[in-house]
């Protein structure tokens, strides 16, 4: 089986998207004979046709991106628009998405996932579905016991996909947890993220006292 992963993260190789999908691809390659390639939207923004050709030639494509304002980043939308001329072509690849967000709950990703499903139909591609994951901001500063769990899931999803060409629904469901936070989780997790992820960075940059600045006020 052949798979092309198109990394739509504006952070390219250093993205949380790249980290997670690296484990998926490692799993995918466990099946002998499988081949994969990774391409980066950040590399091709000036010459998007190279990437649409890559898309057209592939057997399976997964487009990965971080959630930006409840949808795909604008740069990913540019690519989806560039694919329009291929809509309905007979040899289009099977298409899936990987959408991750910084919010701790996966539920935020469900809305754009519906868009992605409709986009796949519009292109006339066989749909692979979407891998959705919340809680992905700052994977490099999250505790290992959390990230190791995510990475193991992505690896196993990749292994399964490498064998069957499908995302395992039970695994997708487990990976998506927590879909929502309960009130107890919320009171624990919110102050932790605000402090450990954001205030620490502001403090290191010497701007914690400017945290709530309003520079665009008239």
């Amino acid at each position: 089986m052949q798979l092309t992963f198109i990394n739509g993260s504006p952070r390219g190789k250093k993205s949380n998207t790249a980290r997670l999908m690296g484990h998926f691809l490692r799993g995918f390659m466990e099946t002998p004979g499988n081949t994969s390639e990774i391409d980066y939207l950040t590399k091709h923004r000036q010459d998007i046709n190279l990437l649409t050709e890559t898309f057209a030639m592939a057997e399976n494509v997964i487009i990965g991106f971080p959630l930006y304002v409840d949808a795909m980043p604008g740069s990913v939308k540019e690519f989806l628009e560039a694919l329009a001329p291929l809509a309905g072509k007979k040899d289009n690849p099977a298409l899936g998405f990987m959408i991750q967000c910084g919010f701790p709950e996966t539920s935020h990703n469900r809305y754009v996932a519906r868009y992605c499903e409709k986009f796949t139909q519009r292109m006339g591609c066989l749909s692979l579905g979407s891998i959705l994951k919340g809680g992905c901001e700052g994977l490099d500063v999250q505790p290992d016991f959390l990230t190791d769990k995510y990475y193991a899931f992505f690896y196993m999803l990749g292994v399964e996909f490498g064998k069957t060409g499908k995302f395992d629904p039970a695994m997708l469901e487990k990976l998506a947890r927590p879909e929502h936070l309960n009130a107890g989780n919320m009171t624990q997790i919110i102050p932790f993220i605000n402090q450990a992820l954001w205030d620490v960075q502001m403090e290191n940059n010497g701007v914690l006292d400017k945290s709530f600045d309003k520079p665009l006020n008239p």
Binding site: Y68, V69, A71, M72, P73, G74, S75, K77, E78, L80, E81, L83, A84, Y115, K118, F119, R122
Partner: peptide, 12 residues
Amino acid sequence: IMGFLSSLMKNT
């Protein structure tokens, strides 16, 4: 465009 706001608008 392809079912959503233009990329110009989304980038903005």
